[in-house]
Design a protein around this nucleic acid. Structure first.
Lengths: 197, 197
DNA sequence: ACCAGAGTTGACCAACCAGTCAAGATTCTT
DNA sequence: AAGAATCTTGACTGGTTGGTCAACTCTGGT
């Protein structure tokens, strides 16, 4: 039927909710704040989503596929260092272009991952283990310097997401200019030196 | 006068508050939860601290000195790579031994650093700029490989705090054994290869 | 043993919270 | 133009929250 208004309002709500949830965490966010940000009334929010929980759930569901994709895109047939470098750059670009999503995820993990433990313990874990095996094979073939594959993956997550999650801190320490200026060059150097066999 | 009961209860409250604030953020934490965790009544909490805000403030004040100290301890007269490596190991040990403090800090930054902007923009910023100049001088003398000093410091923060802040994720991905197993070896390798001139 | 001050708490309050509902406004279809 | 379906919201509810207060108990010094 009339899906134009529905689509527009759902998008307004999810966009506002991403602002509020990523800035305050689940418990710290309020429906009033989301409604105000979306320019809708609170009962109207609950006309489109069953509950506060359901809005949050919808945001996470949107996010999770996006989160897996770059890691999945590492090509076993590619050149090892180049593949890992491309993964790092992909994650860094995501931190720059989708900082709210990164902070939503970080808030969730920081608070014990209550709503993500299923996803992490099943899909993400399986994918990480698979990619770790691939990297271990590359190391065994002498095509990468010897590194612990799991820690290598964690390091890429830590270094790239840091620019989104700790953006407030970086801006206060380097008030002039773009907080991410030089980040890609620095990380490229770092992983070039780490991975060269 | 009688400071024994006061000291004991203040410590109980701050310890419980650290649990609750680090797990839920400021807005997500409740005085009831802190009181329950501390084994005291809610009015009793407010006998020792003026408000929820005051408890949080007290935790942050305790934390901030501890946060600066390792960075301050980098010795301009020392051997460059060894000094930076020692700093990294110091931060990693703090992430292992004081994960709640790390998460309290992370929650605060993630939510825009509303209560830390003064500290970051003044004391932390001045110290970071000073240490960045020191590292830049070491690079200029050819005693370190050329790296952006600011990004080097950020990378140490990101990589070490990640093990505390994203502990829940790491545990779910590697359920067997200590989440920090191998972390020190990995980071030592990483910074050895990055910094060798 | 006494009491002044320190420590403690049940009962309470006003503000805020997620969520409901019935009634009204708008839009779509014919 | 009109009826049906969709969309919107003011007013409300029951529960939670930070914080208050008067009354109570406990402790240490004499």
């Amino acid at each position: 039927m009339n899906t134009r208004i529905q689509r527009r309002n759902r998008r307004l709500i999810l966009d506002a909710a991403l602002d509020v949830f990523s800035a305050h965490g689940f418990r710290g966010a309020t429906l009033d704040a989301i409604a105000r940000q979306a320019g809708l009334s609170k009962p109207n929010l609950l006309y489109y989503f069953d509950s506060k929980e359901a809005i949050h759930r919808a945001l996470l569901d949107d996010l999770l596929e996006t989160w897996l994709e770059p890691l999945r895109a590492i090509d076993p047939a590619g050149e090892p260092a180049a593949e890992i470098m491309a993964y790092m750059r992909h994650k860094l670009r995501m931190a720059r272009d989708y900082p709210r999503e990164s902070r939503l995820f970080a808030n969730e993990i920081l608070q014990g991952a209550p709503r993500l433990s299923d996803f992490i313990a099943s899909e993400l874990r399986a994918l990480v283990e698979d990619r770790a095996r691939l990297i271990a094979a590359w190391v065994a073939q002498g095509r990468l310097a010897p590194v612990d594959p799991m820690h290598l993956i964690f390091s890429i997550w830590a270094l790239t997401q840091h620019y989104a999650d700790f953006d407030a801190q970086i801006r206060l320490i380097r008030p002039q200019g773009d907080p991410m200026q030089g980040a890609e060059a620095f990380l490229t150097t770092l992983y070039n030196r780490l991975l060269a066999p």
